[in-house]
């Protein structure tokens, strides 16, 4: 009996181990990747790397224009995508939920989320760079990224709005508040931590995007930082792409250092999102 038991348990254990391996292998690959990039990148990383301009000599080249360009992009993207996205979410959640137009918009947003990012680049090139004559500017890049993250901002904002209990809205109406007063003074303050966290995560995604910026025309070699929204620009991932594509080993090391800077920036953003959410939630409780 016990002999039969152990025999029938053998494949069960093997299967269990297999499923654990399926989780462990990708995570180990990620760990391996991070260790390799960091070890290679740290040999080059230093204050001068962060404050220098690109150069033909790998050991003088730095990431300053890329870093500043990425910060410009992030700020402008936030300015465009957040009002639009939160506004759309309020419209969908708080107004006309049942209307046909809302259903159409909803399906449309789900579809937009599945459009490859490089197609947004083509949209940016055709619409912002050419038709609206923005040129290959940091503004055109930010508009493109804003449309790219818009579906995500709408979805996370809707999620946040949905967590606000109906009873709070009803209480506000009972006190004579209008719809917009209710939204502005009751619903939004409640949904604010969720919206903020989602927005930061969306921006963290935008900062890592490369393909749409390549199409919109981010430059790979500039020796200045943007001084306005109409200036040409580069970005962290673009600079990394440029370095990794070169045959010389020293530039590939620069790429690794650039990746460390990029990942660190994203880590800070994600950390900020989690910290803000926890703090704001605690404050309210």
């Amino acid at each position: 009996m016990s002999d039969h038991d152990t025999r029938s348990r053998m494949p069960e254990r093997a299967f269990f181990a297999l499923t654990i391996a399926a989780v462990a292998v990708p995570l180990l690959v990620l760990l391996f990747l991070l260790v390799i990039v960091t070890r290679s990148g740290l040999t080059r990383l230093g204050w001068d790397f962060v404050t220098s301009y690109p150069s033909r000599h790998a050991d003088h080249a730095g990431i300053l224009p890329g870093l500043v360009g990425s910060l410009w992009l992030m700020g402008l993207t936030a300015l465009i995508a957040l009002p639009l996205g939160v506004g759309a979410a309020i419209h969908l959640e708080e107004y006309g939920k049942q209307s046909r137009l809302s259903r159409l918009i909803e399906i449309n947003i789900a579809n937009l989320a599945g459009v490859p990012s490089i197609v947004y680049g083509l949209l940016g090139l055709g619409l912002f760079v050419r038709t609206l004559h923005m040129g290959r500017s940091v503004l055109a890049g930010a508009c493109t990224l804003a449309l790219l993250v818009l579906p995500m901002v709408v979805m996370v904002s809707r999620e946040a709005l949905r967590t606000v209990p109906m009873s709070l809205r009803e209480a506000a109406y009972a006190l004579g508040a209008t719809r917009w007063q209710t939204i502005r003074q009751v619903v939004l303050p409640q949904a604010y931590p969720g919206i903020l966290t989602g927005a930061i995560l969306a921006l963290a995604r935008a900062i890592g995007e490369t393909a749409p910026l390549v199409v919109v025309g981010a430059l790979t070699y500039i020796t200045f930082v943007p001084d306005g929204v109409d200036a040409p620009f580069t970005a962290l991932p673009i600079q990394i792409f440029n370095w990794v594509s070169r045959p010389q080993r020293a530039f590939v090391v620069n790429a690794a250092a650039g990746i460390v800077v990029l990942l660190a920036t994203m880590l800070v953003l994600n950390g900020a999102a989690i910290y803000l959410r926890n703090r704001l939630q605690k404050k309210r409780a």
Partner: peptide, 30 residues
């Protein structure tokens, strides 16, 4: 107040419409 309310609703609707315009933009450019 109700005029203000209507204006707000219009602005919010325009935000939602921006997502539809994105799709149209992609289709037109391509």
């Amino acid at each position: 107040r109700s005029r203000g309310e209507q204006a707000v609703e219009l602005v919010l609707g325009a935000c939602a419409l921006a997502t539809v315009l994105t799709t149209l933009g992609i289709l037109l450019v391509l």
